[in-house]
Amino acid sequence: MFLKKRLSILLTIIFILSIVLPQFALAQTTQTPQTTVSDIAVIEDLAQIEMRIYGEVKDDSLLNRVELLEKELVGRTLPGILKDRVKQLKDFIVTGTPEEPSLSFKVNSAQWTLQDKITDDPLKVKIEELELTIFGELSEEVLAMRAERIFSVCFPEGKPNIQEITIPAGTLIPVVLLESIGSKKSDDGDIFEYQIAEDFVYAGSIIVPKNTIARGEVLKAKKASILLKKGKLEVDFKSIEALDGTNIRLVMGEASEEENSRLGIAIGASIAGLIILSNPIGLVAGALIPGKNVTLKEGTKIYLEVANDTKVLSLVPVS
């Protein structure tokens, strides 16, 4: 009797396991896979490409976004897995080589040749504006063909001399404000425009043409107070776009701080960008005088510097 009871319990356990174990194994094989570093890189690269072409990140599935880019650029979808297709798009639009410069380099070089500046508009907008300037009408061809046609008009003798160079961190770049900002005038989060004051040339090559426009952000604006507290303005100049489309991060560092001190601007380095402090006026004849607000007026020239060693494709001027 005891043996029969144990046998019954054993059979019950086996029956339960025969049901549970397959379900557990199925759950293990069908659970959602974790996102890998490679997956994140693909998503980030795709967003960078869309920002470069459209000025915004599209709200759709990854596959649909890739196919839209491919059709707009070359008129058809490309073969291969998604990761490889995104890499091809990035190489074509962003990276490029001296032998075959990127779409960004071609469009920016053409814009500089015609307009003596590079704007921060999306490539699609730049192509349309250049077509209207050169041909007086918009083309219905794919973006790659339209950019190539514009490039060939601006450089009729063929591809210009292009070389890859690395700009060392700390290299100074003069910029000019295109609008006024200040501790009293500005608010946290305000966006302002500035431009390169002169051609940024390194090792004999043009990296960023004069008048190239970029945008910075006011991180913190604090008004001066009646209690002699100084006005404070914390600013991030973010980055400037090179000819090849590379974003060159600009910051306030030791070299640029020293150069700016010669211009009479009291600027202190900070992690995000720079902090500008006004000088307190102090007490006069026993009266409490308000602290002084700081203002950087439109047209003010200051020096920034390259944050990190940055590799770019540059244009070698014809001698």
Score class of each variant (00 low, 15 high):
Lys4Ile: 09
Arg6Val: 13
Arg6Asn: 13
Leu7Ile: 12
Leu7Ala: 13
Phe15Leu: 10
Gln23Glu: 14
Phe24Cys: 03
Leu26Phe: 09
Gln28Arg: 12
Thr32Ala: 07
Thr32Ile: 15
Gln34Glu: 12
Thr35Leu: 07
Thr36Gly: 00
Gln48Val: 01
Glu50Tyr: 07
Glu50Ser: 01
Arg52Cys: 03
Arg52Lys: 14
Lys58Ser: 12
Lys58Pro: 00
Leu62Ala: 03
Leu63Phe: 01
Glu67Ser: 04
Glu67Lys: 10
Leu68Phe: 11
Glu70Asp: 07
Lys71Asp: 02
Pro79Lys: 05
Gly80Met: 10
Ile81Tyr: 10
Arg85Lys: 07
Leu89Ile: 05
Ser102Glu: 08
Phe105Gly: 02
Phe105Ala: 01
Ser109Met: 13
Ala110Lys: 06
Trp112Arg: 00
Trp112Lys: 01
Leu114Pro: 01
Pro122Ala: 09
Pro122Ser: 05
Ile127Cys: 11
Glu131Ile: 11
Glu131Leu: 15
Leu132Pro: 04
Thr133Ile: 11
Gly136His: 06
Ala144Pro: 01
Arg149Asn: 13
Arg149Leu: 05
Ser152His: 03
Pro156His: 00
Glu157His: 13
Lys159Trp: 01
Glu164Gln: 15
Ile165Pro: 02
Ala169Asn: 02
Val176Met: 00
Leu178His: 02
Gly182Ile: 12
Tyr194Asn: 08
Gln195Arg: 15
Asp199Ile: 12
Phe200Gly: 01
Val201Pro: 07
Val201Ile: 15
Tyr202Gly: 07
Ala203Ile: 09
Val208Asp: 02
Lys222Arg: 12
Ala224Gly: 09
Lys230Trp: 06
Leu233Gln: 06
Val235Gly: 05
Lys238Met: 03
Lys238Arg: 07
Glu241Thr: 15
Glu241Val: 05
Ala242Tyr: 04
Asp244Leu: 01
Asn247Leu: 15
Arg249Ala: 13
Arg249Ser: 04
Leu250Ala: 00
Leu250Tyr: 01
Gly253Thr: 07
Ser256Asp: 11
Glu257Asn: 14
Glu258Ala: 12
Arg262Glu: 03
Ile265Ala: 01
Gly268Trp: 05
Ser270Asp: 09
Gly273Asn: 00
Gly273Asp: 02
Leu274Phe: 12
Ile276Asn: 05
Leu277Phe: 12
Ser278Pro: 12
Ser278Arg: 10
Asn279Pro: 08
Val284Glu: 15
Gly286Glu: 11
Gly286Met: 03
Ala287Gln: 14
Ala287Phe: 15
Asn293His: 11
Val294Tyr: 08
Thr295Ser: 07
Leu296Ala: 14
Lys301Leu: 15
Asn308Ala: 10
Asn308Glu: 13
Ser314Lys: 00
Val316Ile: 14
